[in-house]
Amino acid sequence: MRKVPTPTPLNHALALGSSRKGAGEWWAERLSAIALIPLTIWFAASVIALTGSDHAAFVAWLKTPFATICMILLLIALFHHTALGLQVIIEDYVHSGAKFAAIIATRLGCFALAVAGIVATLRIPFAG
């Protein structure tokens, strides 16, 4: 049986103690950020190079193995980073029960978008 707690200030500050995790997510956010530096610059440069191009030119670009691989890596890193970043923002500002709904929606949404983007990218060289 748990004693009826008399919350002291220290009790309040210590709360439930340390969860002994957090470094993993911190690392994942940095790792995806580092991956995104070259990938997003590649993407931006490609989009500028494609300015004014039609569908055929776009397909010809994305069809190259290098572009397909980079695009898929970009989608994975981008939505991983997005999910982690948005989750931190939600945790910071939302303190009601809506917090969990928002985090679940963000996580699942990012996963779905990443898969949709990858499938669309793969359809161009393999089905198109």
Binding site: D54, F79, T82, L86, L113, A120
Partner: peptide
Amino acid sequence: TGVILSAFAVLMVVWLIAAASGP
């Protein structure tokens, strides 16, 4: 800017799906 880029990430996927769907 991170939140704005998240919105554009959605647009990027729309763009890819449109490209995969045809001219």
